[in-house]
């Protein structure tokens, strides 16, 4: 128990270092630039303590729980050596983590609103909701597919840059055929769909797979799953808007 406590105290010190820039930036702009006092200083301090403790616990749990979990699963799938099982797991993980992602829910609702205002769909609550829900399902399926492609890449050792650059070319081509209203939303969606829990799990899974498969290098092959999961939503939102 004392070992855990000591570890967490160490993490709090790290977290303090990680949060110093934010505190400095906000204090500087509040006091020097805007020249205003801090509103509710007490609440802010209590909040900062929560952020510190939360970050420390999160990082500790990451190293003792999430990373070993991702690696253990990667090893279990390699031992099992069933491609179908591994790929369906990859799809479910990508789909499952994205479909309920709050950032995606917000983006889908915004996209429906923008498209309706531009007159591409009827500006009616039920039509907008249907558009938003379909969009979420499409994006979640696209992230699932992207993780599957990323896992196949790790297994085969394909070079990542060829695939990512092809993705960029597809995005560029689709952009030319898309209305300007949807472009901003589509580009933004790539960054927000990968959440705080998904990223460590996907990273550990990728590195775990690359480590346990013979002939694969964790640096060369293990990373990259997140890159695919970020590019897919951009492509699919642009394409969905064209089809719908």
């Amino acid at each position: 128990m004392t070992a855990i406590l000591r570890a967490i105290v160490g993490r709090v010190v790290d977290a303090l270092r990680d949060l110093t820039p934010i505190v400095l930036v906000i204090a500087f702009f509040q006091i020097v630039v805007l020249q205003q006092p801090f509103p509710n200083l007490g609440d802010t301090l209590v909040g900062l303590v929560c952020v510190l403790l939360g970050l420390a616990l999160f990082i500790h749990g990451l190293e003792s729980g999430l990373f070993p979990l991702g690696e253990a699963i990667a090893q279990a799938f390699t031992r099992k050596s069933s491609l179908v099982a591994l790929l369906s797991f990859a799809f479910c993980l990508g789909f499952g983590t994205t479909v309920a992602e709050p950032a995606l829910i917000a983006i889908a609702a915004k996209a429906a609103e923008v498209v309706a205002l531009a007159g591409h769909i009827e500006n009616d609550v039920s039509v907008r909701d249907a558009y938003a829900l379909n969009l979420r399902l499409v994006v979640a399926a696209s992230v699932g597919t992207a993780v599957v492609i990323g896992v196949i890449r790790i297994l085969k050792g394909w070079p990542i840059h060829v695939m990512i650059i092809s993705g960029y070319l597809i995005v560029t081509a689709l952009t030319f055929f898309s209305p300007p209203e949807i472009i901003g939303i589509a580009y933004d969606s790539g960054g927000v769909t990968t959440s705080t829990i998904t990223v460590p799990l996907l990273t550990a899974l990728g590195v775990g797979l690359a480590t346990s498969i013979k002939g694969r290098n964790p640096m060369l092959d293990g990373f990259g799953l997140i890159a695919f999961a970020c590019l897919a939503p951009i492509i699919f939102i642009l394409a969905y808007n064209m089809v719908a």
Partner: peptide, 8 residues
């Protein structure tokens, strides 16, 4: 560890 991640 997972529980710690959630609480954190």
């Amino acid at each position: 560890g997972f529980v710690l991640v959630l609480i954190g």
